[in-house]
Structure formats: C-alpha cells, structure tokens
Computed example of a mutant assay.
Amino acid sequence: MDAEAYGGKNDRRQSETQHDLPRLLDRAARNAGMDRAQWQIQRKGDEQLAVRRLDGTEPRLVDDYIRHLVAELREYNAQRVSAARMRLRAVIHQGPVELADNGFAGAAVVATARLLNASPLYDALATHPGADLALLLSDDVFRSTVLGGHTTLTPADFTPVSVRVKEYEARAWLWVPADGRPTVAPPRSGLVEAEEPTASAGAGTSTDRYAQAISGTAGGPVIDNEYRADRINVTNVAGPVDARGAVFGFGSAGD
C-alpha cells in the first residue's frame, strides 16, 4: 500500500497520514475476518509492505479485505477536504519471501515494489479522481483467485496492463472500484466458474449484474424483496457463531 501525493502534503498532513493509514488497514482486515497482527509488516511513512503466509484465505484478501478497505477510505475521505483525502495504490503478489536484517528479501518483494510503482496505478487514480483506491494484482494472484472463480469479482472487472519498471516487466491486472459502486459484495452462492478473461468493455462488472438482477433489467429472474410476514421461520442459535465464508439461504416450504 502507498498513499498518493504524500510528498506534497505539509508536515501536519503527513503526520496525519502516518497515524491514520495503519488504523484504516487494521479495521478493514478485522471486518474481513483477518488479523494483521499475524502479518510481518514493514512500515515506511506513507507506505506499508505486509507479508502473510499462504493459508488458503488469499481470495478473502483480494476480495473482502480490499472491499472493506475501500469502504473505510470512503468514510474517512467523506469527512475531509480534498487536500486531506487519503487515496491508496494497492498491490497483491505472491512468492517466497525471506526475513532479512533490514526488511524483506526475495524476488517476490522486488516484484511487489515494481508493481506498486507501475504507471497504470498512477494513471488509474488520475483518470478516476473520485476513486479512493486502485488495485493491481500480479498475474499469478489474478489467475489463482479471480480467474479461478474464488471471489465475487470476475475477470471482466479487471483490465490487463503491461508493467515495465526498471528491470521488471510483466503483465498485471488493474481494478478501480468505480465511484458510487457498492463496496460490500453481493452474497456468494458458492464458487463460480470463470472463463478466460477478455478486454471486452461490454461485459459489465459483477456489481452491474447484481444491480440488474435486483431491478430485473438483465432479462433473467428478478430478486423478490417482498416482505411476507405469514411465511417467517425462526431459527434460534445459542452462543456465538463464526459464519465467515458461509452462505445462508432463506425461504419457505411453500415456495
């Protein structure tokens, strides 16, 4: 993560950014059911490099964590003048990492730093002044999470870009949560099979299709939100329940 235009802020604004950035990241992680206290974090002013073990929750990092971070940024920036906004460039990559005497070492760390400084990320924030975050996934992460169908995001939500920074050159995948779009994903009903990504602009995003399903403009079945008091079933649960990653369906035997 790296904050935009940090060097152009005065001392007070820079101190505020350094104070608020880790707190926003921590809250987003907690809301996504993740614990950043378990991550190795290298801090550098307006930038953070976090290393976490591969444990099977990578789709949650790409999906839930980023969506909650966008929601945190939107609420944070809504209370500030334009000069005090915090806008982030974010990158997710995977690979072997070594803990060294002065930080982290390894090709994956270098690749992450190069991706974070890629011009498509800067251009994305400049092109979308209302956006609070721009995300770049490495090709490996994109294919193992989004293309693999393990997130509520789809390949159509991303734009393939070429990254060339110093000696590093690779393909990556860009997503900019659009202005006014829902930042909390619609409920998942299991994993969805994803097709090979295309750059078709007419494909629409996952949030587009969710909104169409609610309104009935997609040509398919309409989501019925009618309240039916005579068909209520109550399930009582005693004690705390950890339902992260679960899918609940509600209905009645008469439907």
Results as ranks from 00 to 15, higher is better:
residue 212 Q to M: 06
residue 242 D to P: 05
residue 166 K to V: 11
residue 58 E to W: 08
residue 191 L to K: 08
residue 137 L to R: 08
residue 240 P to F: 14
residue 170 A to S: 15
residue 110 V to C: 08
residue 27 R to Q: 11
residue 169 E to M: 15
residue 131 A to N: 00
residue 107 A to T: 14
residue 211 A to P: 00
residue 21 L to S: 03
residue 89 R to F: 03
residue 162 S to K: 15
residue 245 G to Q: 10
residue 227 Y to N: 06
residue 212 Q to W: 05
residue 157 D to Y: 06
residue 19 H to M: 09
residue 120 P to R: 07
residue 152 T to M: 08
residue 109 V to N: 04
residue 1 M to S: 06
residue 5 A to I: 02
residue 180 G to N: 00
residue 214 I to C: 01
residue 203 A to K: 13
residue 112 T to E: 05
residue 104 F to R: 04
residue 127 T to D: 14
residue 104 F to E: 02
residue 213 A to E: 07
residue 232 I to F: 09
residue 230 D to K: 09
residue 178 A to R: 05
residue 37 A to E: 12
residue 2 D to F: 01
residue 51 V to L: 06
residue 247 V to N: 08
residue 225 N to L: 13
residue 49 L to H: 03
residue 174 L to H: 08
residue 170 A to D: 15
residue 164 R to V: 15
residue 96 P to Q: 07
residue 84 A to Y: 02
residue 212 Q to R: 10
residue 100 A to R: 12
residue 187 P to Q: 09
residue 142 F to G: 13
residue 214 I to Q: 05
residue 119 S to D: 15
residue 186 P to G: 04
residue 248 F to K: 00
residue 106 G to S: 12
residue 50 A to C: 09
residue 253 A to G: 13
residue 77 N to V: 03
residue 129 P to F: 00
residue 168 Y to I: 13
residue 23 R to V: 10
residue 86 M to W: 02
residue 33 G to Q: 05
residue 65 Y to K: 00
residue 159 T to L: 14
residue 229 A to P: 14
residue 242 D to T: 14
residue 219 G to A: 05
residue 211 A to C: 01
residue 115 L to Q: 06
residue 14 Q to R: 15
residue 32 A to D: 04
residue 154 T to Y: 06
residue 94 Q to Y: 07
residue 252 S to W: 03
residue 11 D to W: 04
residue 109 V to D: 07
